[in-house]
Design a protein around this nucleic acid. Structure first.
Length: 779
RNA sequence: UGCCCCGUAGCUUAACCGGCAGAGCGCCUGUCUCUGGAACAGGAGGUUGGAGGUUCGAGUCCUCCCGGGGCAGCCA
């Protein structure tokens, strides 16, 4: 089995960064990921992104990736999907080794964790009906109301929960809920349901259970059971992470907390001209809009496989699209590019005419046949193979390669024009035969027998047009399915109308093609290029007698007559945007109390703090309190304010201010050190970090580490000269006008001095050194 | 209207602690060519959603605004 290691493009993304950081700081010694499909549908290329990510990270960091079926809902899941999913993952080129798991294997353990939560008082049995639970959950803007059963004793809960398990209760009579907060602003935390009663047969556990865990409960614990380190999922689970953490923090013992799994979310894949949701795909299949799950127009892995897309192309594509958190829609052109690039190197060339037009070569002897030796591979591909192509008096060429009235720039066949027959002779069109309706039915041509295999004719004629052909007497008929985009608009889901209204009526026209006989020599597995057309391979509907091909992707065509006038929809002008976006600055002070107004006046008048800053401090009382405590008689109230607002706020939420490992006074001392230029702002930030992490005293720490400001000009000059000497090319570039490099050199000087260089002095000296040529190299 | 997430070139994205805004696709030129393919060379394209602030220096930190997505299943 091929591994996925032949997709080398391993680019940087936030999940890779997290994994590397976790490995570097010892949080985890190895990476364990998982691909967790629910067996209730077919996999599509969106899943491929997840598969490649999960298996790819495991591969890149020498870890492992589990295949786990998330089968906690007996009413929707089915054995048949389990098989197809495994087939698809394997086809994509990934191997889970011994690590095939099912959430249903953990039902007993999950149940034990549930009892654990009940015993701890973190879960209760709710006996409201479904409607009551929904009504009492509240809305996004109104808090919920607690269930009347919320305060049952752990003993009563345990008894009830055990009864639920033994089947003493009907579906819906009770549920197990986490006891969190019915007024939480996070809907997921309003006592989420953990278990429900379902007297249903499960495809694996049969009738062993009549209670089944919900996703939020089962998933995080399944991860923990399997020692997953990085649980990667799509964006719609972002809110669920809060519950994921809540459950694991309460179910796992203290010693497991440091290495427990964590969930990270990335954007699912969307692509132009198709749909990716399970529900919509199911509709297309069920309503007969396509021919089954493996219809070659579908983005399902089964469909792509049948169409002929190689798994390596899908892997490469998944590497190339990146992994990020922004909702996005990938341009279909990227997929097509990757696909062509993959196919180019693996597809022998043959000729095939998709829309045949008969050509009679009037000066070619009747009844004669010759065989022309032609390579299967172009010059630039390092592969060697040939075949003999039969040539005769009657040929077929592509109807589209002839025009009665050739447009400008068209350099194929037209009345009186000459082209080259690929691999064969020059051919001139002498006469056009048309039927009663004016349709061209035959071309009567002459060939130049001297030009076989010649770059140009002896008189220097060298036609620019080259067209493909097949010998009429030897042509092999085949049905060719011209797979195209399923939808005629890039985003069929973004419109008012139902998405099926945008199905492309020409998504799979069928061509009655004529192929050169060499086609018979290839196995059905072999992908072929029909020269000048595209890449094709045999469809599974083909039999020994009837050849059926799918077009995997047409060749790129830089000749296009159809200039689609997609007049770039002019967006709103800058003025319009600004008019629509008034910068309304609601003033929080308008709703201040009397006391707050007094405080505001004190801050602005007595302490000299800018009004906006003062308002912000007072609007969040812990901030204002912190400022007053930090001030302790010193005068730099604005500086302390800046540090609270801009630095502290970036590191800790306001609510944590009272519990910091250092006192507000110490914070004030730190700010004074910066304000009086004892240390640089840059060092000040480092000291603040040390205070936060290790609770150090700023003054002692600065003294002990020797962090004082370097403003000695000679010392700085030496460092600057050293940096200039180290990057002569950049000095040159700076002198040639790339002034942005001043920042680069400042960065270098700062790095060199551990941030201790006095910035103003350093910048002054740097500018001098860069403009006046004093670098050692020049002396 | 509560909470969470996200806005970098047409598209997808990169940028270690704040320090030269970079790439692939697409597009346009050209070279080469017995595939209007491929390959090669070059080019255009950016107020990093906007406004303030902190800083010697902001895509990156702080505040506000705008825009997009998600959350009120006994689905996952």
């Amino acid at each position: 089995m091929p591994t996925a290691s032949d997709t080398p493009d391993s680019r940087s993304h936030f999940i890779r960064n997290i994994i590397e950081a976790d490995l570097a700081d010892g949080t985890h010694e190895t990476v364990v990921t998982r691909f967790p499909p629910e067996p209730n549908g077919f996999l599509h290329i969106g899943h491929a992104k997840s598969i490649c990510l999960n298996f790819g990270m495991a591969r890149d960091y020498d870890g492992r990736c589990h295949l786990r079926f998330d089968d906690t809902n007996p009413t929707t899941e089915d054995e048949r999907y389990v098989a197809s999913i495994q087939e698809d993952v394997r086809w994509l080129g990934f191997d889970w080794g011994d690590h095939l798991y099912h959430a249903s294997d953990y039902f007993e353990q999950l149940y034990a964790y549930a009892e654990h939560l009940i015993t701890q008082g973190d879960a209760y049995v709710d006996s409201q009906d479904g409607e009551a639970i929904r009504d009492n959950r509240g809305t996004v803007t109104e808090p919920g109301t607690p269930s009347p059963y919320r305060d049952r004793s752990p003993e009563a809960n345990l008894r009830l929960f055990r009864e639920m398990r033994t089947g003493a209760h009907a579906d819906g009579a009770h549920v197990l809920r986490a006891k969190i907060d019915m007024a939480s602003p996070h809907m997921i935390m309003r006592d989420p349901i953990l278990y429900r009663i379902r007297h249903a047969n499960h495809y694996r556990t049969g009738d062993d259970w009549c209670i089944y865990p919900m996703y939020d409960f089962a998933h995080c614990l399944s991860d923990a059971i399997e020692d997953i380190t990085h649980s990667l999922c799509t964006l719609e689970f972002e809110n669920n992470r809060r519950l994921y953490d809540w459950i694991l923090e309460r179910c796992l013992p203290e010693e497991q907390q440091a290495t427990r799994p964590h969930q990270y979310e990335f954007a699912r894949l969307n692509m132009d001209y198709t749909v990716m949701s399970k529900r919509k795909l199911l509709r297309l299949v069920e309503e007969g809009l396509v021919n089954g799950w493996d219809d070659p127009r579908l983005p399902t892995l089964a469909g792509l496989r049948r169409r002929g897309v190689p798994p390596s192309a899908i892997r490469t594509f998944c590497e190339r699209i990146g992994v990020a958190k922004a909702n996005s829609r990938v341009d279909i052109a990227l997929f097509e590019h990757v696909l062509r690039d993959d196919l180019n190197y693996r597809s022998p060339r043959i000729m095939g005419v998709l829309d045949p037009l008969k050509v009679t070569i009037t000066n070619y002897p009747e009844g004669e046949t010759e065989h022309i030796e032609a390579p299967h591979w172009p010059r630039d591909i390092d592969k060697e193979a040939h075949r003999a192509v039969p040539f005769g008096r009657e040929l077929y060429i592509e109807r589209d390669d002839f025009r009665m009235d050739p447009p400008d720039g068209f350099y194929r066949l037209a009345p009186g024009r000459e082209v080259r027959l690929r691999h064969a002779y020059f051919l001139r069109c002498d006469e056009v035969v048309q039927d009663a309706d004016g349709r061209v039915t035959e071309l009567r041509c002459t060939y130049d027998p001297e030009t076989k295999g010649q770059a140009k004719a002896s008189d220097g004629r060298r036609p620019k047009g080259i067209i493909h052909w097949v010998s009429a007497a030897h042509a092999v008929p085949a049905e060719v399915r011209m797979v195209d985009r399923l939808f005629s608009v890039p985003d069929p889901e973004a419109h008012e109308d139902d998405f099926t209204a945008f199905l492309n009526p020409q998504s799979m026209p069928v061509a009655d093609a004529l192929l050169e006989p060499a086609v018979r020599g290839f196995s059905g597995e072999q992908r072929l290029q029909f020269e000048r057309q595209g890449y094709f391979w045999r469809d599974t509907d083909a039999t020994d007698d009837t050849l059926i091909f799918n077009q995997i992707i047409p060749l790129r065509d830089s000749w296009s007559t159809d200039d689609d006038p997609e007049d770039a929809a002019t967006g709103p002008t800058k003025e319009e945007i600004e008019a629509a976006n008034p910068q309304i600055h609601a003033d929080p002070a308008e709703s201040f109390t009397e006391a707050q107004h007094a405080r505001l006046e004190h801050f602005t008048e007595a302490l000299g703090i800018a009004r906006d800053d003062a308002v912000q401090l007072i609007d969040t009382p812990p901030l204002a309190d912190y400022l007053e405590a930090a001030l302790d008689g010193h005068h730099e109230a604005q500086a302390v304010t800046n540090w609270i607002l801009n630095e502290l706020m970036g590191l800790v939420p306001p609510a944590d201010l009272p519990d910091l490992p250092f006192t507000p006074e110490q914070f004030g001392v730190l700010v004074r050190q910066v304000a009086t230029d004892e240390i640089t702002g840059r060092v000040g930030k480092d000291v603040l970090t040390a205070m936060l992490e290790d609770g150090v005293d700023p003054q002692e720490y600065i003294a002990a580490e020797g962090l004082r400001n370097i403003s000695d000009e000679d010392a700085l000059r030496e460092i600057i000269d050293g940096q200039l000497a180290a990057y002569p090319g950049k000095v040159e570039a700076y002198r040639n006008g790339k002034e942005g490099l001043l920042g680069f050199f400042m960065g270098q000087v700062m790095r060199e001095t551990g941030g201790q260089a006095d910035p103003k002095t350093a910048q002054k000296l740097l500018r001098e050194a860069l403009t006046t040529d004093t670098s050692p190299a020049a002396q």
